[in-house]
Design a protein around this nucleic acid. Structure first.
Length: 926
DNA sequence: TACCTCACG
DNA sequence: ACGTACGTGAGGTAG
């Protein structure tokens, strides 16, 4: 082999592992034993891709060691900002080492040095021996080492190509003349992730300009006088030494005591036995198949001869597990595009007992799309596609051929995110009846805090990769095609596959509902709720846009005034909406606080609680807070809501997501109607714009009073709290009397306010620190209050301890209606992570039971409204509140119905109170 | 796209 | 000795 052909790959293990973990862990991979293998798989794929595609002749993987490094000794803050390594990663590392050993690749590590230094040192030595070296890492710092023979190889994101950075690319990226200036850039600019400070206020652009004039940091400091801009000159003078130190920190060490030994790094065939044992343990079936099939085919790493590999493989390949894959199941997908074919299909569906269906549409907004087609499946491997024409009147006629089977109560329906299909079909005069099975929601109950989209479910449960929507209509953006323009044959394959897969998912998921004891919750609450939500969304809510537009103009003026005032007080103009710039102004320039809180990325925090504490330091603070609240109102609500009025209905239609919140709550988006302002005077103006459909109607709001505290009183059985609720005493006053050990009549406003904060804290899983922050009192006092609380409400304390114990034993907690939340970190060795899990253990049953309760109420109210054939409609849900658009003549009918059904949704051992009132807008209805 | 901030319960 | 209250969605900036 020629000298030129020698290719050395040096992998930066930890950087690659982190990257792999965060890229994959959105859909975490967890083995049957509960091991999170996201990091392992991500790294394995990256490693294997490189071996296969780049065919290195030599390879090594560099790790950091636990010993403190030279840099720590120099500068103690270095990397101090780093968060603790996620447990999923630390547990993965031993497996990743096994994997590397399985591939017969040496692991490189030297005490006292970082992986960067090891890579740098070896890269230089190898270069001298005539190798082309690829440093495989996403870390931009490596740019400093790049030369003609040393390149940086940045692995691509899933589905994207890797990027190779040579001298030219590095210089372009950093805007410098030579790669070695990268460290000067980093020295001036800083690097948040490594806690390298740089010069405050100097960003990428300034750093680049300085280097253009002064070449390097040392020279810059020496010639600081020559800087034109006065402000910058001062900064450089003040922080010059810090920049120099930053540069040193960013410099990769090239004289680590180790020698590049060619033979040790030579790529050799993998150790099949080791790999197979590992793959079995971590349940890597697909990856194993890929590796071993390649070996079998002799698509050899590094151009090795296939014979070599077979010799190394040792044992027969039949032992490798084969995968079930629906691609291998023969399937038949039909096109039902004539009246005759449709009639046959309808008859078939009518006799089926249950069918799975899916709709294809021109967009994502169920209340503003056109139907392009429908697909149906009745057994795995067979499906039908019914194209729906462009013209609405024709479309309705065709779709209505299916009205009978859709409406048939005796035919069950299966789908993925059925609320969407049901909503779309409403526009085509279709009513969907019969028992529903929504695979998305089934999975939501089985694994509440994972994702539930079909592609993920298909991969996880069927080991199948569905045809992507992108392959039909392209990536989203202005060039995306319409569903209408897709070739019918292709669309048929895609649509039928969706129905087919969904049906198979039902088969996979149904037993798991039973296993997790969530079948009743599914059948009696979640599935009936799907149609209730579809109805509410279709109803929508009327908005008074004129009112909002007027308000917008008023806000505009106020913002302009505040803005002017802020610039005046600051002595310069800047972007107030940029937390970065704002932080520099009030902390660096104006020095309003010497101890500003830092955000994750080393910036000064400018969040409200921080500013609130500085409010007496300078008048600019209040102005900033005003500016923030004004712009928030304007951009998020006042200017946005009128744009979301649906042209078909003249109303706003939110979408309630039933499979997002891991506690069981709903969430609302497009727009979010669950966070409309109410707490401030100006914010309340927005609620005035939510109005009844016409002057014959009023809005009625009904909300549960203190439902979460009532639930904890009920669940815990705490006598003291139950007694307070039974006597109808204001719960926060009662709490104050108890913790301050005084009579109810002696409770002051402040005591009540404190008690209220404590009560909230209880629901969230209180900590002394959290309480002291919120009450702005010393931690000792907060601790004292908490201990008083637990003494006086011993039942609550007992509940908290018991629920944590339960979680430790079972790995999950559950609500009154058996909704589960799994807490995988509850037995973690990491106190911080465990703390989160413990607070979730306390909160989830309460927040979740409250969600169970209002969901039940919504279903029964909807049923009762239908039974009574009322004109009034339920139109919104805000966690503990229901909003109705009520016909004037029905107000007195509807009130007792709502009250009774909300109160009786779940029977508690204490009274449940519901507050109701009506008005000509949402604010008045409160 | 990630982060920060802030609106609600 | 660690950092900290639970659950969401959305808009802006900056990379």
């Amino acid at each position: 082999m020629s000298q030129e052909g020698r290719k050395l790959f040096l992998l930066d293990a930890m950087a690659l592992i982190y990257r792999a973990y965060y890229a994959l862990n959105k859909n975490p991979r967890i083995t049957s034993k509960g091991l999170n293998t996201s990091a392992i798989l991500g790294f394995a794929n990256a490693l294997y891709d490189v071996i296969r595609n780049e065919k290195p002749t030599h390879i090594g993987v560099a790790f950091d060691t636990h010993a403190p490094t030279v840099r720590h000794e120099d500068f103690s803050a270095y990397k101090a900002n780093r968060e603790a390594m996620p447990e999923d990663i630390s547990t993965a590392i031993p497996y990743i080492m096994q994997l590397i050993r399985g591939f017969n690749i040496p692991i490189l590590a030297v005490d006292g040095y970082e992986a960067d230094d090891v890579i740098g040192t070896l890269a230089k030595q190898a270069e001298n021996k005539g190798f082309t070296v690829y440093m495989m890492t996403p870390d931009k710092d490596f740019g400093q080492l790049v030369s003609d023979n040393i390149l940086q190889y940045k692995p691509g994101k899933p589905g994207e190509d890797p990027v190779i950075m040579g001298v030219k690319e590095v210089c372009e990226k950093f805007g410098v003349k030579r790669p070695d200036q990268v460290i000067d850039m980093l020295g001036l600019w800083g690097d948040a992730s490594d806690n390298i400070p740089g010069i405050p206020g100097v960003g990428e652009v300034t750093a680049r300009n300085l280097l253009k004039d002064f070449d390097n940091v040392e020279n810059l400091i020496e010639n600081a006088e020559k800087i034109d801009k006065a402000g910058l000159r001062e900064k450089v003078k003040t922080f010059g030494q810090q920049a120099l130190m930053s540069k040193q920190l960013a410099t990769i060490i090239l004289d680590v005591p180790l020698t590049f030994e060619e033979d040790a790094l030579k790529l050799t065939p993998p150790d099949i036995n080791k790999l197979q044992t590992l793959f079995e343990e971590i349940e890597f079936r697909t990856f194993a198949k890929r590796v071993f099939t390649d070996l079998e085919k002799g698509s050899p790493p590094a151009g090795k001869q296939a014979a070599d590999l077979f010799a190394a493989a040792g044992e027969p390949l039949e032992t490798i597990a084969t995968l079930s894959n629906i691609d291998q199941v023969p399937h038949v997908y039909h096109l039902a595009d004539t009246p005759e074919k449709r009639k046959v299909l309808v008859t078939h569906l009518g006799k089926s007992g249950m069918f799975c269906f899916d709709t294809e549409t021109t967009g994502l907004d169920a209340n503003n799309v056109e139907l392009v087609g429908m697909s149906f499946a009745t057994r795995p491997g067979e499906a039908w596609f019914v194209p729906v024409p462009d013209r609405y009147s024709e479309a309705v006629e065709i779709v209505k051929e299916f009205a009978g089977v859709f409406a048939d109560e005796t035919i069950g329906k299966t789908g993925q995110n059925m609320k969407y299909d049901i909503s779309v079909l409403k526009w085509y005069e279709i009513n969907v009846n019969g028992s529903l099975f929504d695979t998305m929601i089934a999975h939501y109950l089985i694994e509440p805090d994972m994702r539930h989209n079909m592609d993920f479910l298909a991969r996880t449960y069927l080991n199948y990769e569905p045809v992507s929507i992108e392959s039909l209509i392209g990536k989203k953006g202005k060039n995306q095609l319409s569903m209408r323009s897709v070739d019918p044959e292709k669309l048929k394959e895609y649509a039928c596959e969706d129905a087919d897969i969904t049906l198979q998912l039902r088969i996979a998921l149904e037993p798991q509902l039973a296993e997790t004891d969530t079948r009743a919750l599914f059948d009696e609450i979640e599935m009936p709720l799907v149609k209730v939500l579809a109805a509410m969304e279709a109803e929508g809510v009327k908005i008074d846009s004129g009112n909002l537009n007027q308000f917008s103009e008023q806000l505009e003026k106020e913002i302009a005034e505040v803005e002017k005032e802020i610039y005046l007080l600051a002595g310069e103009e800047f972007n107030i909406a940029s937390p970065k710039q704002l932080g520099e102004i009030i902390f660096d320039k104006m020095q309003l606080s010497d101890n500003p809180k830092q955000t994750k990325t080393k910036q000064h925090s400018t969040s409200e609680d921080v500013l609130q504490k500085l409010i007496n330091k300078h008048p600019i603070v209040q102005q900033i807070l005003d500016y923030r609240s004004l712009t928030k109102l304007k951009s998020t609500y006042v200017d946005t809501l009128p744009l979301l009025v649906n042209p078909r209905t003249g109303r706003i239609h939110t979408s309630y997501n039933q499979a997002v919140a891991s506690t069981g709550r709903l969430s609302s988006n497009n727009p979010n109607l669950q966070n409309i302002p109410i707490r401030t005077e100006r914010g309340r103006e927005i609620r005035k714009a939510f109005v009844p459909r016409n002057d014959k109607f009023v809005l009625l709001s009904a909300d549960y009073s203190q439902i979460e505290l009532r639930l904890i009183a009920h669940i815990s059985g705490d006598e003291a709290m139950q007694e307070a609720f039974r006597h109808g005493i204001d719960i926060h006053t009662a709490t104050a009397a108890r913790i301050y050990n005084i009579d109810i009549s002696e409770v002051t406003k402040e005591m009540r306010r404190n008690a209220k904060t404590v009560n909230f804290g209880i629901i969230y899983g209180i900590s002394a620190f959290g309480l002291s922050e919120r009450l702005n009192i010393p931690r000792r006092e907060a601790a004292e209050i908490i201990s008083q609380y637990f003494e006086r409400f011993a039942g609550i304390k007992r509940y908290m301890d018991e629920i944590i114990t339960f979680a430790r034993e079972h790995g999950y907690v559950e609500t009154i209606k058996k909704r589960r939340r799994y807490l995988r970190d509850i037995n973690s060795g990491n106190a911080i992570v465990r703390g989160f899990a413990e607070r979730n253990a306390i909160n989830a049953p309460i927040q979740g039971s409250s969600a169970d309760m209002i969901k039940i109420a919504m279903i029964s109210i909807q049923r009762e409204f239908e039974r009574l054939k009322l004109k009034s409609r339920m139109i919104m849900q805000v966690h503990d509140e229901l909003v109705f658009d009520v016909h004037q003549d029905e107000v007195e009918t509807v009130k007792p119905v709502i009250e009774r059904l909300m109160k009786s949704a779940i029977e508690l051992s204490i009274p449940v109170e519901v507050e109701m009132s009506t008005g000509s807008n949402w604010l008045e209805a409160h």
